[in-house]
Simulated assay, not measured.
Amino acid sequence: MSTLQPTFAPQRIALLGAGRVASQLGPALLQTGHQVVSVWSRTAASAQSLANQLPGAAVSLNLDFAAQPPADLYLLSVPDAAVPEVLAAARFPVGALVAHTAGALPLALFEAYPKVRGGVFYPLQTFSPGRIIDWHAVPLCIEAADEAGQALLLALGHSLSKMVQPVATLQRQRLHVAAVFASNFTNHLLGISHALLTEAKLPFELLAPLLRETVEKAIAAPPFSVQTGPAARRDAPTLARHQAELSAHPAWLALYKSLSDSIQQQLPPAELNNEAGL
């Protein structure tokens, strides 16, 4: 990813949304010298709460941005399912640059609105209440329908992050699927681990060194090449014992079997790790 920063120019930005992404992005934009001119949300209270954290930001009571002070960028940071609905209801100044922050939505959805210039400003990160994001380390994936829009979004990205890259829709959508596996599915599996340890009256912290080594190893080498465990070893007795342990949790048992099968299908017999270990 590019680490070169173009000349910084403060931007006037209207935020559409006040949820997990917008509530982290708004203050970050302000801290890097940009001006958040307005905040709109489907609930006025949410818009007001975020605007209170952004000196100079007004609360937009409606989606008629053509009648409001102009912005250089209108940033749609709403749930993916709401983006088409908001675009259809909004009225932007002719020629306005409007970008969404979604990983899975195509740039082409802006083609239905020829009076605006479409773009994508996708932060590859998970956002949760109470967690502070280090934006310098967040990969930002940029796409735009025109060169001027691309340049503005890239410059905005570089003002926030050291990891900024143009990423076309098809690549970004595949990236989003990969991110779901890496983050959302992994977190769900960790939730199952937490629940099993709670049942056994053991602390979840016991897994911390294992988790760190697993992630560090997967970053250092192709993850499939460092797969370990009973499924990779085709250790039938251990697999059977684990399945018996999970008999009280049918859904988790089915998931265990499915993941074990997937591991075995991915690794040909000649490449199996038959050494002892987790």
Rank of each mutant, 00 (worst) to 15 (best):
A232F: 11
A240F: 01
S258T: 09
Q243M: 10
Q264E: 12
L255T: 06
D261E: 13
A231C: 07
A232P: 04
A254E: 13
A232I: 02
R241C: 03
E271A: 15
A270H: 07
A231Y: 12
L239N: 03
L246F: 10
H249E: 00
H249A: 05
H242M: 00
R233T: 10
Q265E: 06
A232C: 14
T238V: 15
P230H: 07
T238N: 03
I263P: 00
W252M: 00
Q243G: 05
T238A: 08
P269L: 09
A270L: 04
N273S: 09
S262I: 04
A254N: 10
Q266M: 14
N273R: 15
R234L: 15
H242Q: 06
E271T: 07
A231G: 03
Q265G: 08
L267G: 02
L272F: 11
L267V: 15
A232D: 06
N273I: 12
P230Q: 09
H242S: 00
Q264T: 07
P237V: 15
Q243T: 01
R241I: 02
I263M: 06
L253N: 04
W252S: 00
K257D: 03
L255I: 05
P268V: 11
D261I: 00
L255K: 03
L267E: 01
S262W: 11
L246V: 05
A232T: 08
A232Y: 10
Q266A: 15
H249M: 06
Q264K: 12
L239T: 03
T238Q: 11
P268Q: 05
D261W: 07
K257G: 01
A244S: 12
S258P: 00
A244I: 08
S262N: 06
D235L: 12
R234Q: 15
S247C: 02
A232M: 09
A251V: 14
L246W: 09
A232V: 12
A254S: 14
S247H: 02
Q264I: 10
P230C: 04
Q264G: 03
Q266T: 14
A240N: 08
L272M: 13
A251C: 02
K257P: 00
Y256L: 00
D235K: 07
Q265A: 14
K257N: 07
D261N: 12
